[in-house]
């Protein structure tokens, strides 16, 4: 479902003397449907960079990132927009929403964008919010004022609203209490069971051990610095 081959990436900082910083070289990775692969490696090793490249958020310098048949590294913006709408979900660490939009609409939005009716989309959103223990009285409020943990759970609900065939999870259990952590892990297991291919970053080792079928150490993709 997700297939990465010979991927490399460098940042060119034009306003700092055009410094070129190579951050990834010759990355190879694949995730099959129903499989969860965890990325490991120290901070700054390139886990998030790799996730962002799969998401289409960072441009690849060279190589292939195939998600559901589309090469993200070469795709047109509108192809990536469609991929994100239909095929590829992403739970980031940060919630980015239009202020003042009610939480329930934030969670329902991915379904609304797919043409699901308002009632059905909201029902699904309510279901997830309830499961993630967001009190119902908060559903009509904007999540921008929520605590970090609550925002994180809203983000997860949003990411799981539509049954994407492929999912990117960036620290989905960070800043969650034990009860909600287990809810999230159950959601991940359910996604795997329906055949979703999942690529994730888990600093929570116990969580990683529980849901990941394999781990990939991104230090293997760190470019050798030319001395």
């Amino acid at each position: 479902m997700i297939e990465i081959s010979n991927l490399s990436k460098a940042f060119t900082l034009h306003n700092q003397g055009a410094a070129v910083i190579p951050v990834m070289a010759n990355a190879n990775l694949h995730v099959r449907p129903g499989e969860c692969v965890g990325l490991i490696g120290a901070s700054g090793a390139g886990k998030s960079t790799l996730m962002r490249m799969v998401w289409g958020n960072y441009l690849a310098a060279s190589g292939v990132i195939r998600v559901g048949g589309l090469d993200v590294a070469q795709a047109q913006p509108r192809q990536i927009i469609r991929l994100r709408r239909e095929t590829l979900g992403y739970v980031s660490q940060f919630l980015r929403v239009v202020p003042r939009v009610p939480t329930i609409d934030v969670v329902a939005e991915p379904l609304r964008n797919l043409g699901v009716g308002e009632d059905q989309a909201q029902a699904r959103a309510a279901d997830l919010l309830a499961r993630l223990n967001i009190p119902q009285r908060l559903w009509s409020l904007s999540p921008t004022t929520f605590s970090g943990g609550e925002q994180q759970r809203v983000n997860i609900a949003r990411g799981f609203a539509h049954p994407y065939p492929a999912l990117l999870l960036d620290e989905p259990t960070a800043s969650l209490d034990a009860v909600n952590r287990s809810v999230v892990l159950a959601l991940i297991e359910e996604a795997k069971a329906r055949g979703a291919a999942i690529l994730g970053i888990f600093h929570d080792e116990a969580a990683r051990d529980q849901v990941c079928d394999r781990v990939v150490d991104v230090r293997a993709f760190t470019p050798k610095v030319a001395a």
Binding site: F11, N15, L59
Partner: peptide, 20 residues
């Protein structure tokens, strides 16, 4: 390009200046 890509991984010197 894609909005979040241009903002998060700007390629051109001017875009980098604008974003920063």
């Amino acid at each position: 390009g894609l909005t979040d890509q241009v903002l998060d991984d700007p390629q051109h010197a001017y875009t980098q200046l604008l974003v920063s």
